[in-house]
């Protein structure tokens, strides 16, 4: 998608640094194909020097199939940079979508932040 063609972007991503190479990206809003710049920017900020980056989906309002594609390309970037990409905070519906698309075979899923932190 070219920079001047960005309709309907309703997504905010905040990066939290928990120390020891652990970062969390808090997702708020909708993930669609038009959100590439927001996701790439957040992942660049989170991924630099990280050993694990967790995507927090607790405040996700909606994701369409374009969003799945963006998560896959983010995963490839994470693998290239040498850190793990995990997820938590998915509701039952999006857990099923991760299973249906077989994203859950490559991205470990935790119930919530506490569960994720306990895994470290």
């Amino acid at each position: 998608m070219k920079g001047n063609e960005m309709p309907d972007v309703n997504l905010a991503m905040r990066v939290r640094d928990l120390g020891d190479g652990v970062r969390i990206i808090d997702i708020e809003g909708e993930i669609t194909a038009f959100c590439e710049e927001v996701i790439v920017d957040a992942h660049q900020r989170a991924g630099d020097g990280a050993r694990v980056v967790a995507l927090n989906f607790l405040d996700l309002d909606y994701m369409n199939s374009g969003g799945i594609g963006l998560l896959v390309t983010t995963l490839i970037r994470a693998q290239r940079q040498g850190h793990q990409l995990v997820a938590f905070g998915l509701n039952d519906h999006y857990r099923e979508i991760f299973s249906l698309t077989r994203l859950d075979e490559a991205i470990s899923i935790y119930a919530d932040e506490e569960d994720f932190l306990a895994s470290l």
Binding site: E5, P7, F34, N64, S65, T101
Partner: peptide
Amino acid sequence: LYADERSWTYMTPEGHVFAGWVTFSSHEDA
């Protein structure tokens, strides 16, 4: 895999030529 008023996506089965997703969509440009 997915269909709404502005897009839909196909997902491939095992054994298809390629593995992945094909998304058809329409939007207004700048």
